[in-house]
Amino acid sequence: MAGGDEAALSALYDRYRLILFGLLLRILHSRAEAEDCLQEVFIQVWRQASSFDEARGRPFTWLVTMARSRAIDRLRALSSRDRTVQESAREAVEEVSDAVTDAIRSEQGATVRAALDALPQEQRRVLELAYFEGLTQSEIAERLNQPLGTIKTRTRSALMKLRELLSGASANLY
């Protein structure tokens, strides 16, 4: 990939498109937005391939981090621009994703969901609000009407526990 060859990019796309597109749909609630975003992600992958150091990071982590961050940027831009479009799109997408879903839920998904299920509900909620809706800790505190300190503690505890729970399974995860 460092040489920037198309075959490598195609391989990367073929391998990760389902999970990345699923993630983008979950965040953006619109197929069109998610596809645009996925395209941007792979163009960025192409541009930054030479800067990716396999020894220091997993491609999966790199791609997912990039995709999530781009999607959140897009989500913020969208919600500040046009809430109604986003809301109407949300319904349409949920129908589509419902039809696709469970059949292709993976073994890895089961592992992570099991770990997530092991967390207290309020910790899980914080993770979801931050990761999928792009809320900062202050925004979560406001949304849940809780002190910021509480939310920070919850975030930290949730991530520590998740890290611990996943450490045994990490070999299969990425």
């Binding site: 999970i19 993630l23 979950r26 997993r58 981090t65 995709a67 696709v100 969901r113």
Partner: peptide, 8 residues
């Protein structure tokens, strides 16, 4: 990033 696995 593992959270991405929880999504369909």
């Amino acid at each position: 990033s593992a959270l991405a696995y929880t999504v369909a």
